[in-house]
Structure formats: structure tokens, C-alpha cells
């Protein structure tokens, strides 16, 4: 009898612990989904134009250096990230290095993500691992002849030595704009080597048709708070037009999903 009672108590305690754990998991996944949206992972890792499976990669990202194809980030163990450890995922996001040691091209915005905090990175991983696994092999990039793993290593070295790091001032607005939202990647001009010119931060990149969003009069200096809120929530521009193409995706997948306090934090940060 005594043995039975002990067994029942053990079972009850185990069930309670397991319920607590699943509660923690659910919270991490939910937090991860919010951060995943704020980092706009969906747009680059889903081949929307060709009705590709969500997060299975294969989206073509055209650039002056050739065409990059985004990788599969579903939890598929063979073709996705299903075998990645927490440390693998953190290293990929903040250093741009894959678990097998190869370096990612900066078409993946790890230079912005390098300031993401560890807890947030792992929450994004938890969310990704809660999504359906899709078996789809990654497509090789189609790049200019002079680009290879070797030149990429030299580029990263030069970038570390010569380029100013991507801004992050520790505020929530900066975390959303500079880190998660990686706005500098498109809106800050680059030099001939493709390095971000942070001294001209957010002044636009004509090659990407990304406008000046600095506080100058050529940028968003004349915009009021409501105009900025309408842009981020609805994609509406002050002249009555609506944003197009990639920025349309940014609004749809990311900025329109910000909580009100994050929207206000971004507006306050951009108007400084």
C-alpha cells in the first residue's frame, strides 16, 4: 500500500513538472514567434513568388554580387536546421558561421543580429523548431566569379577592421530598428566592397531603391508621429501612396505586428 502511494505521488509530481515545462516551452515559442516576426525571418526564408513552403528557403535575393538563395530553416534534420544545437544557432546568428564552420555571406544580416540577446535567439529557435519540418535541399548561390569562401573570409576580416559596427544604443527602439528589424541592411548605403557606411546611417541605398529614412529633410525629418505609425501599421505613405515590394513585405510580416509599445519605441527612436 505504502509503495502504491509513493508511486502515485511520484507520478503526480512528474505530471506537474512536465506541465510546468510545457508551459515554459509554450511561453518561449510565443515569445519566439513575436521576435521572429520582428526580425522578418519569413520574408527571406520563404519563396513566396513560387508558392514555396514556409521557411524552406529557396528565395532568390538579387544583388550586385549575384543571386543569393536563402536556406531552409525548418526543423528538418537532413535539409534544414533540425540537428542544430542552441550554440550552433547562436553562432550562426551573431557570427554568421554555420555549424560545419562555413561562413555566411552578409546577405544574411548577422552583422545586425550580433547584438541580439541570447534569450531572444533561443526563443526564435524554439519557435522555428515548433514549425513543420520541410525536406527541401538548399540551392547553391549564383555569384560573381570572384566570390568564394576564401574571398568571403577576407571580406569579413576587412569588414571587422575597417567598417564601423552596426549601431545599437541599448534602447528598445534601437533593438527593433538596428538589431531585429535590421533596417540598416537596406537603408544604409554601402561602399564598393559592400560594407555598410555607418557614418551615413539610414541615408538610403539607391542600388536597392531603399529611401533615406534618416531624420534629415530628405528623409523622415518632416514626418509626424501619426504618419510614421500609419507607415509601420498599414504601409501608408504621407502622400497617400503605399509602400511596395520588399518594404510591403516588411510591413505585412513584421512592423504591422509590433505591439503598441514597440511601435512607440521605434517612432521615438527614429525621431531622435
Amino acid at each position: 500500500m505504502f509503495f502504491r502511494i509513493v508511486l502515485m505521488l511520484y507520478a503526480l509530481i512528474s505530471m506537474a513538472a512536465s506541465a510546468d515545462e510545457s508551459e515554459v516551452d509554450r511561453a518561449a515559442i510565443e515569445q519566439g514567434r513575436y521576435l521572429f516576426d520582428a526580425a522578418n525571418c519569413y520574408a527571406c526564408h520563404t519563396d513566396v513568388d513560387n508558392d514555396g513552403a514556409p521557411l524552406a528557403g529557396g528565395r532568390a535575393l538579387e544583388s550586385d554580387f549575384g543571386i543569393f538563395f536563402s536556406p531552409n530553416i525548418t526543423p528538418d534534420k537532413d535539409t534544414g536546421i533540425g540537428n542544430w544545437s542552441d550554440e550552433d544557432f547562436i553562432r550562426a546568428l551573431i557570427l554568421g558561421i554555420a555549424p560545419d564552420g562555413h561562413h555566411y555571406y552578409p546577405s544574411f544580416p548577422y552583422l545586425s543580429y550580433q547584438n541580439m540577446n541570447r534569450e531572444d535567439i533561443l526563443a526564435i529557435k524554439a519557435y522555428l523548431f515548433s514549425q513543420p519540418a520541410v525536406s527541401q535541399k538548399n540551392k547553391p548561390h549564383q555569384l560573381a566569379w570572384y566570390l568564394s569562401g576564401f574571398t568571403l573570409r577576407i571580406w569579413k576580416l576587412l569588414n571587422d577592421l575597417a567598417a564601423m559596427p552596426v549601431t545599437y544604443d541599448g534602447s528598445r527602439g534601437s533593438y527593433l530598428v538596428d538589431v531585429l528589424g535590421h533596417c540598416n541592411e537596406c537603408h544604409t548605403p554601402r561602399n564598393m566592397l559592400g560594407m555598410l557606411k555607418m557614418q551615413n546611417r539610414l541615408e538610403g541605398n539607391k542600388a536597392l531603391s531603399a529611401p533615406d529614412i534618416s531624420t534629415s529633410k530628405n528623409g523622415i525629418g518632416g514626418w509626424d508621429k501619426q504618419e510614421l505609425a500609419d507607415l509601420f501599421r498599414y504601409g501608408e505613405l504621407p502622400d497617400g501612396d503605399y509602400v511596395a515590394d520588399h518594404m510591403g513585405e516588411v510591413v505585412d510580416n513584421s512592423t504591422s505586428k509590433w505591439a503598441d509599445y514597440d511601435l512607440q519605441a521605434v517612432i521615438e527612436y527614429l525621431q531622435r
Binding site: Y242, A244, G248
Partner: peptide
């Protein structure tokens, strides 16, 4: 009005309009 703008002009521009140069 704001929801209409996003679901009409915004949705169409996202997939079918290039960004201005």
C-alpha cells in the same frame, strides 16, 4: 479606411509594384 488601404493598395503593391528609384 486604414485597413482598406493596407488590404487593397498595400497588398497589390507588395507583390506587383517595384519600389521607386
Amino acid at each position: 479606411y486604414k485597413k482598406f488601404g493596407k488590404a487593397s493598395c498595400g497588398d497589390c503593391h507588395k507583390s506587383f509594384k517595384k519600389k521607386d528609384d
